[in-house]
Amino acid sequence: MNVKKFITFEGGDGAGKSVQIQKLYHRLKQEHGPVYVTREPGGTALGETLRTMILRTPDLAPKSLCALFIAARHHHWAQVIAPALAQGFWVLCDRFIHSTFVYQGGIGGLDFEFIQLLHEQLEAYIIPGLTFVLQSVPTESYARCQRRDSSQKNYLDQRNFSIHCAVEKAYNDLSLGNIVRIAPGNLKETEESVWKSFQHYLLKECSE
């Protein structure tokens, strides 16, 4: 399966991934469509059910949590992402494999080799063609999470400031696939950085 049209967005909570995905979606649709947008955990009925369960259950054992994420990822890939790519769609995904290495590995303490092996065993070790990591200033991302509507908050939004710092460091240390790190900036600056990086990626892929 050709993953060149599979683009993921990563970053800490409150980094602005959802906003930038929508902005890239509209520009891609206008100039390079069709485009499909999805997310993890989620993207399928199973994934959305797991998302609700996982985000409301803070006491899952690390390996159990990791296994659930990866099982949902395999289903997401097989049922949604791969078919869309096969039909010629660009696929934009809010979080994917990098999140597991950061949150269950770098933050959760699981060995990276274990995470990779579990992905491989479940046929879910898929590296996107391009991954944007939206970097953030931890004080700002933490503040955004605290400002979220209380009815929509989950236990991830309640994590203390030090976790935001650890997540930022884990993303900065991670090397997996084709990563483009987007420095913190205002909404417009970030949008233009994403678009410029995408165009550079497109030119590179077309020339190979």
Rank of each mutant, 00 (worst) to 15 (best):
M1R: 07
V3I: 15
F6Y: 11
I7P: 02
I7A: 00
T8W: 00
F9C: 01
G11T: 02
G14N: 05
Q20G: 02
Q22F: 08
K23F: 08
Y25P: 06
H26C: 08
L28G: 00
K29S: 13
K29G: 12
H32M: 10
P34S: 02
V35E: 02
V35I: 09
V37M: 15
T38D: 02
G43S: 03
T44Y: 03
R51Q: 05
R56C: 12
R56G: 14
P58Q: 10
D59V: 04
L60H: 02
L60R: 04
A61P: 02
A61T: 08
P62R: 01
S64V: 13
L65V: 00
L65R: 10
A67P: 01
L68A: 12
F69C: 03
I70Y: 01
A71C: 11
A72W: 01
R73A: 01
H74E: 10
H76Q: 05
H76E: 05
Q79F: 04
P83D: 07
L85C: 08
L85Q: 09
L85N: 05
A86G: 12
Q87K: 15
G88R: 05
L92V: 01
C93P: 05
D94M: 01
R95N: 07
F96A: 03
F96P: 06
I97F: 05
I97L: 09
S99H: 00
S99C: 01
S99W: 01
F101I: 02
Y103C: 07
Y103V: 11
G108I: 00
G108E: 03
Q116D: 10
Q116S: 12
Q116K: 14
Q116R: 14
L118P: 04
L118H: 05
Q121W: 10
T131R: 00
S136E: 09
V137D: 12
P138V: 09
P138I: 08
E140L: 15
E140W: 09
S141K: 08
Y142S: 06
S150R: 12
S151H: 11
S151P: 05
K153I: 03
K153H: 03
N154T: 13
D157S: 06
Q158A: 15
Q158Y: 11
N160A: 13
N160Y: 05
F161S: 01
F161Q: 14
H164S: 06
H164I: 01
H164R: 08
C165M: 09
E168R: 15
N172P: 03
D173V: 07
D173G: 01
S175A: 14
G177V: 04
G177W: 07
G177N: 00
G177L: 05
I182Y: 00
A183G: 00
G185D: 11
L187V: 13
K188G: 10
E189W: 08
E191M: 04
E191C: 11
S193P: 00
V194K: 00
W195V: 11
F198Q: 02
H200N: 14
